[in-house]
Amino acid sequence: MTHASTAPFVSIGQILAEKVLPPLHRAQKLPLRVSCLGTISYAGATDADCRDRTIPLGDAASPEDAMTFAAMRVARNDILIGPDDTLHFRPRLIVVQDNALGLVLAGDIRAGVILWQHPVASDREACRIVAEASRIRGLAFAASGRGDHGSARDLRYQASRLEARLVDPLWREIATDLLRLPQAA
């Protein structure tokens, strides 16, 4: 009598490498840091007077907590530079990084909502995005050299939106799974 197995044999080494070690490695990279990229300016400032700025918002214990924390801050318009009312901040991107500065998630802010960017699916796709973002940053540099500060800022933002998909390989699967879940309205 022969016994037919429906499941292929999986070695303990493979189980450790695929199931046990990645969560342990991710746990070492906590807490996650949530920040917002945007533009600061004074009332009535010209494009040349505006500056790109990153504002730290806080820490989170998990990607899910980071998404919730960021969504609440954006929805409440609770992203401030400081007590100075003369400075205006225009939030553009939310970025979630681990404590080694690896990208976990990033999202574009539009009308008080974060549109989370789907991570790249492969290293090959990541290379294409890096090349395209570099090309766009080159165009931004040229626009800045011509004194076209508004176009330069928009091009830098466009490159940053592309780079928002460059999630660290350690976090790609988790980010992809999180973005598959139905979002509450």
Rank of each mutant, 00 (worst) to 15 (best):
L103P: 03
A121Q: 09
F69D: 04
I129P: 02
A45V: 05
D52Y: 01
A100E: 10
A152E: 07
G147I: 10
S144M: 07
G107F: 09
A75N: 10
N77F: 09
R153D: 03
A71R: 13
A131P: 00
R73F: 12
D108N: 11
L57F: 03
A70N: 07
D59I: 12
L155I: 11
G107V: 09
T176W: 05
G44Y: 07
S160V: 00
D177F: 01
V167Q: 01
L93K: 01
I55G: 12
D65W: 05
I81T: 15
L178G: 00
G145Q: 14
A45N: 08
C50R: 15
H149E: 14
C127S: 14
P119F: 08
V167W: 01
G44N: 10
E173Y: 01
V95M: 06
R137P: 06
P119Q: 06
A71H: 03
D52L: 10
R153Q: 10
W171F: 02
A142Y: 05
D49P: 00
A100H: 09
G38C: 01
L37V: 03
G150W: 11
L166Y: 06
V120K: 01
A43F: 13
A106G: 15
P83L: 12
G145Y: 03
S41D: 05
I79S: 09
I79Y: 10
R165L: 00
T86R: 14
N99K: 07
I94N: 03
A111I: 02
Y42E: 10
E132K: 15
M72A: 14
L115V: 09
I94K: 03
A100K: 12
T176G: 08
A45Y: 04
D123Y: 00
W116A: 07
R90A: 12
V120Q: 01
R53H: 08
V104Q: 04
L115A: 12
D98H: 10
R76C: 15
N99F: 00
C127F: 08
A133S: 15
A106V: 04
S122A: 07
Y42C: 05
S62M: 10
V74M: 01
R90W: 00
D78T: 05
V96G: 05
P91W: 05
A75R: 15
S122M: 04
R137Q: 14
R51A: 06
T86K: 13
S144E: 13
A43R: 11
R53M: 08
A159S: 12
A143L: 06
I79W: 09
R76Q: 15
L103Y: 02
D49Q: 15
V95E: 06
G58T: 04
A43V: 13
T68S: 14
T86G: 07
V167E: 00
L170S: 13
G107T: 08
C127A: 13
T46E: 09
W171G: 06
Y157P: 00
L57I: 09
V167N: 02
A133G: 08
M67Q: 13
S160F: 03
V104T: 04
D84I: 08
G44L: 11
R161Y: 09
L170A: 15
Y157V: 10
D177H: 04
S151L: 14
A70E: 05
D168H: 15
A175L: 07
S151V: 08
A140T: 04
P56C: 00
E125F: 07
R146K: 13
V113T: 09
